[in-house]
Amino acid sequence: MRPVLPSKPQPLRSEQIILFRAGGQLFAISSASVQEVRSIDSVTSSGKIVSHPDIPKVQHFVQRGEASLYVVNAAMHFALPPTTPALVFVLRRTRTALLVDGIERMANITRLQALPLSFCHEERDWYRGLTALDQSVIPVIKPEGFLTADELFALDATMLQSGAKDSVGAQSAAADAQLGTMTTLSDSDVDDAPADPPDFASGDNPDPGVPQ
């Protein structure tokens, strides 16, 4: 008779997050969703000005390699009091870069609770869920929730009118193709290996606590 072996406990899956502030409020984002962290100077010096009356949260457009990105002021997006942003997060698999006040720290979470169903407006598009960390509750943002398809369309139209036609058109198609590829992945295709950590731009990192 074979002894029954106790089943090996599964290790807790964890996810690395970046805790950051925008408009004075603490948020979290998966570090795997952040491709680069840059100083705001890199945006203001190389970005083009974008002005759309209905989308005041976007004021800059930048070209990062093959990607064209709209820079969203996170404080304005969440209707928080205006602050002076210092950093830009370039978000993976989106056409969004995010202006934030600064990075608080990095942490690992093992549990993400779905946003309670009582929250039933735009916030369902903003957050992946909530996490409890150090006796505090922090919303974990959804990278694709900063610009709707309609807003991207309107911003692209504005850029086309302002003469950046070739760049925007080509990059929209490239971004759409990339997103299309991503949405065709099935669960079994998803690699559990963590994605590359964000690239903290050398020399631009104002936070000494964050590895470069």
Binding site: R13, A114, L117, S118, C120, R128, K142, L185, D192
Partner: peptide, 22 residues
């Protein structure tokens, strides 16, 4: 309050291996 309005689905930018909300 509770769900009533339709919200956009989609998690194209959620990174592979990310925790799924419970």
């Amino acid at each position: 309050p509770g769900p009533g309005a339709q919200h956009r689905a989609g998690s194209a930018a959620t990174p592979p291996g990310a925790l799924q909300p419970q």
